[in-house]
Amino acid sequence: APLSPSSTLPPYFMKGSIIQLADGELKRVEDLRTEDFLQSAEVSRELKIDSSTVERIDSSKTPDAVIIQFSVGEHKAQVCVEVLVEYPFFVFGQGWSSCCPDRTTQLLALSCAKLSVGDVCISLTLKSLR
């Protein structure tokens, strides 16, 4: 079952929010690039980047929410999340994208592309601890 969406978006997606990369560098959320996530994950002991391909986007019973089905990593694990339509995901080589970019821009001032089936989003997994 998908996780229930929070009724509000986290504050760090607001345009102008200061994000600290793993090497200590500070960047605004709207200036983040794919390389920032990849390089931060490289120096992380616990986290690694996985590719999550959008397989389906369905409407939800919850108002203003959608259910997104991802195929995650090389094992293509199927994961569903229920999020607000304005929730931004970072797409490889494209940047912030949401199901309703107009609403994301309206609420967060964050420029977004339209999230579509086939888009490959950045996600995280825990590295195997040995």
Binding site: Q20, D50, G73
Partner: peptide
């Protein structure tokens, strides 16, 4: 004198969803 306001700084990984279970291999 202007009091410096503290600006919240968020870690990079808070922006990325955890979507996959831990792989055991």
């Amino acid at each position: 004198n202007v009091e410096p306001r503290s600006v919240p700084v968020f870690p990079w990984h808070s922006l990325v969803p955890f979507l996959a279970p831990t792989q055991s291999d």
